[in-house]
Design a protein around this nucleic acid. Structure first.
Lengths: 323, 323
DNA sequence: TTGAAAGCGCTAACAG
DNA sequence: CTGTTAGCGCTTTCAA
């Protein structure tokens, strides 16, 4: 593999001059520039990114860690992150944690080994950072407890919007599937807030705790069947996209009329919610903006700048056919 | 940032010895090993991956290039690739081409600059490789024309399975949405074969050419509406998951009874096809196996081994509620 | 067993 | 304007 030295020899110049022309830094006479470019062309020289990394102590790579990139929400977020990183001249390395601690750990380790310049992470609990350089790391959608800056949707607003919609529709008994009501986990905030607002208005709220985040579509459907005796006795339900689609599907199968018998609201609002009939009413997270903000902040941290501890991205209620 | 030299000084040994202990290569006495590990611990030393790359001339990174990672099929494939690469000790860098040539090009360039050890690619036409080292690159699901080895589903079988199913169901007029009938594009093979088998059996086939691959869910629905006068006059339709879901949704909206009025078969068979009611009948691609094979082959190429020009992965027909 | 030395390919002073 | 030199942090001979 040709190196910068080969080019220098061929063009009859020093390697410094070659470096300067290639990087457009410092002065190079037009004549030698041409000679060098010709040599580059002739021997098909391509600079080694690895060697540049060595000198610059940067790889230009940001790692993105999500539970499962196949999940529509994460797939969408990641796509936008890659696009945003590309705009900024960075590359995007991925890790599906699959809720396996070892995977998280080995990914985080890449920060220490400087294999990546920074990390954008979405895991419930980051490993203990006490032994780590801490480096450039931002978290999104989940809490970290480790003093890592976080970017997330304004789930307080989301929960309130859903509650108000249910009230407007005259619902009296509402059910929500949630991974818990512990506010430490940011995704639970919407459920907690919805519950508060609804109960204040005299609406009964039933919270079913499940591993609802599981990508497994069949798991979601199983849950709907399992709790059907509850669901068929409520007039409103809120859960994530996949869960909502499962509810709709099972409800139709059981002969319910949507939204007359049951109002369904999907949280996340990825495109799959437009594929059912009727289309789902959703609270939509602004994935593009979340991604943009994460990238902006992690790159600031790479450059040693400070970033806010918390960034809130507004959500949007879109009323469609299930309410 | 502590370097191997700092460790050596602290432990009172040479850097070679430190390297040997850390990599478990060569002889090191238990005593000095302990001393070195202690020093490592004390100064919190973490080896620099960049420096190792420099000397090994490898990054341990494989690039994966797809049109759009948000698309359910690619999201699934990529997840399995990441998992498979992780198993083999490799990391996974992503690129959404978004059908932008510059993006493809700059990604492929990483092979030349040795920023990645190999590439797994899914684009219609790879850039001209005449100026490239060619390196370790495999293609999946799409043709390349560049002599790049390819891994893909056995779409011939897929097309035949769908055709036979339509025949079994007594369909007389079948419609398919396709990006073309040109067999050079591997995704078209199934459409071409289905058409042949069906016409041989006396079934009329209508092929509608669209940019059906577009992720845009709304685009898919628009197409269904646009060609509704055709669709309402056929008794069978085959297209990809998202297209099929769109058809089902619109058909239900128009009051058709599925599958009595219209049989729908989705090609790809990702999990979203289980979320509708009725669930979609599908031809399912084996994403995990495609991913496994791609990884296996690209890593072989990284090691200089030869791999087959073409690997065919069987598909599976799953009859559900829309046929 | 272990230390010293020679690179890996490039960038960034620095001296002409 | 341009060539030389000194590393970047690590692995790997090669002697000792």
């Amino acid at each position: 593999m040709a190196s910068i030295r080969d080019v220098a020899v061929r063009a009859g110049v020093g390697i410094g001059t070659v470096s300067r022309t290639l990087n457009n830094s410092g002065y190079v006479s037009e004549e030698t520039r041409l000679r060098i470019m010709k040599a580059v062309e002739e021997i098909g020289y391509k600079p080694s990114a690895i060697a540049t990394n060595m000198v610059k102590k940067r790889t230009g790579i940001i790692g993105v860690m999500v539970p499962n990139q196949e999940h529509p929400f994460f797939a969408k977020i990641m796509k936008h992150m890659e696009i945003e990183l590309y705009k900024q001249g960075y590359k995007c390395l991925i890790c599906n944690t699959l809720d396996i601690v070892n995977r998280q750990k080995s990914f985080i380790d890449m920060l220490d080994s400087r294999a990546v310049d920074g990390i954008i992470s979405c895991v419930d609990e980051l490993p203990d950072f006490s032994n780590h350089s801490r480096g450039a790391i931002v978290s999104f959608d989940r809490n970290s407890e480790a003093g890592v800056p976080i970017v997330r949707s304004e789930h307080e607003m989301g929960g309130r919007l859903v509650a108000e919609l249910f009230i407007k529709k005259g619902c009296k008994r509402v059910c929500q599937f949630t991974a818990g009501l512990d506010k430490k986990r940011t995704a639970n905030i919407r459920h907690e807030v919805m519950k508060e607002v609804l109960e204040e208005a005299g609406v009964e709220v039933i919270s079913i705790i499940t591993a609802w985040d599981a990508l497994s579509y069949s798991y979601n459907k199983d849950m709907v069947h399992k709790y059907w005796d509850i669901i068929e006795n409520v007039d409103g339900i809120m859960t994530t996209d996949i869960g909502a689609l499962s509810c709709l599907s099972v409800a139709q199968q059981k002969g319910l009329s949507i939204p007359d018998d049951l109002c369904i609201v999907a949280y996340d609002g990825t495109e799959i919610t437009e594929l059912s009939y009727p289309e789902l009413t959703v609270v939509q997270q602004d994935c593009a903006e979340i991604a943009r903000k994460c990238v902006e902040n992690v790159l600031k941290m790479v450059d040693g700048e400070k970033v806010p501890e918390l960034e809130l991205i507004p959500v949007k209620l879109i009323e469609r056919g299930t309410t």
